[in-house]
Design a protein around this nucleic acid. Sequence first.
DNA 1: GATAATTATACAGTATCTGTATAAGTGGTG
DNA 2: CACCACTTATACAGATACTGTATAATTATC
Lengths: 305, 305
Amino acid sequence: MEIRTLKTFVAVANLKGFSAAARQLNMVQPAVSRQISELEEELGVSLFWRSTREVRITAAGETLLREATEILAQEERARLLVQRTGTGELGRLRIGFLGSAVQAFLPALVREFSARFPQIQVSLLEMTAGELAEALMAGRLDVSLSRPLPPAMADRFESWDIYSDRLVAFLPDGHALASEPCLPVSALSSHPFVLFQRDGAPDLFDQVVSVCNAAGFSPDILAQPNSMQAVLIAVGSGLGVTLAPACIAQLNTSGCVERPLSDQTVPIPLQLHVRADRAEAATQAFAALVKEELGTIRKIMGAGG
Amino acid sequence: MEIRTLKTFVAVANLKGFSAAARQLNMVQPAVSRQISELEEELGVSLFWRSTREVRITAAGETLLREATEILAQEERARLLVQRTGTGELGRLRIGFLGSAVQAFLPALVREFSARFPQIQVSLLEMTAGELAEALMAGRLDVSLSRPLPPAMADRFESWDIYSDRLVAFLPDGHALASEPCLPVSALSSHPFVLFQRDGAPDLFDQVVSVCNAAGFSPDILAQPNSMQAVLIAVGSGLGVTLAPACIAQLNTSGCVERPLSDQTVPIPLQLHVRADRAEAATQAFAALVKEELGTIRKIMGAGG
DNA sequence: GATAATTATACAGTATCTGTATAAGTGGTG
DNA sequence: CACCACTTATACAGATACTGTATAATTATC
């Protein structure tokens, strides 16, 4: 039972004739006759009672007519859906991101994307940097907005810098150093640190440690919460100080004060990651939109971020 | 897009490999590759991202996988339904009949048929003889239980006698002739007749007229109701007498008395009509059941009819 | 770096399917 | 009653398409 066959069958049934069907299908009557008789043989039933003067469909034929009509409609529907998915009109887009880093611009971006591609179902998945890398690698994400990927992964993905953040210090409200408008890293040497847990963002963790080392001390890390918000709460509670990307000021910083560092400018880029080959149309469209909006995003992040 | 192609596509998608699919389908890997790449070309989309080490389905491919799976399931379903319809396991049976003539045995017959073929949907359609002939000819009925067909139609159908009825007289309750247990036709010569309308049963009408003519008179027909029940009501109301098949005593005869005729024995057969060729399996099964039950039916109709 | 496994391509052979020609059957018509 | 117009079925040749073999190219893995 092939779709080509079903099409000629439906034509014969609807036009009540082999010759008429052949004309409509731009073929020749014997070809139609053969297709139908082979279909009958395959199914083991008569589909039409034919004389030279009339072609009457059998009960089995009527059953097949109903089914075949549905199958053909579904084939047409499938073709449409597949093509739309191929062009990116239809589909899904799974965006993974670092919450605090994108909070200022992602909502507007997604809104714009959804307006342009209303048929695409967008999933927003907040994760840590480590989770993002793993999900991206496993194909559970289409794009990721996160920090630079580990070198082992980098060649499988295309990455674009979106904006660069920098490390700043967060201190408890009434902290001794809070009176300074600006601090050298070394000023923190004797204070206990709270750092985001290393598993969640190994690069950031190591970067902070190496900044401290460069300033001549090794940080005394007394806690490693599993979220940036928890880090800020710990700082706000007076448990310690932290060094973190400035963007986390987007979170609730009550009890904390933020102080820029006077002596380091290690950039912390936020990047867009997309599978190097094999990017779906919807994914490519989103990447294109991000690139289109880079100026706007950088303006936002330079001013308020 | 052919079903054969969809089958190999689904195999590739499920087994995540062209070679594996080829093994499962008992074909060879290049054939699979060609089918897929031609399918991609036809649809204008990539269905898989392939390397020599992995085959990953695209978004469009996932869409097609869903659709193709449904299409294949429906094809399988169609094959099953069509074959069952062909063997008579599944289908419908439209039975046309003369109400009064079959009332005594058709219900039991249909009940038995439905018990043997529970998947067949039986339609019971009461009609006049004229309507039955027309519906049978037009293919709106599968079988008909009615009087002999007009000669022009007879060769297109197979007919079996089920039982033979005879004409009897129906008189109003207090009619002068009602005292006789048995009447010659001629006794009715001076009485007005009520006859079932000729359009509904031309043969019966003509038969009654010719019986009267043979008895030496032409009936004075004062009314031609459109149902046998209406004829009986007219007779019961004292409007006239009628000659009709004995079986109509099955209807409500209040106000009427039935009297056999002493001088005529024209048989009025009830027949089963089935399209000569081109009979569906369900129809043939019903005809076979009727023939099997002929003895029982005749016993019923001889005794109580 | 060799191996084993994968997919893509080229080419030849086979199947299959189409189209032409023709036969056989049937209702309508003069 | 023969003829006509039209139908479907069959036979056969040709063209198309598809399959399978051989081979290349690529890439994890040992």
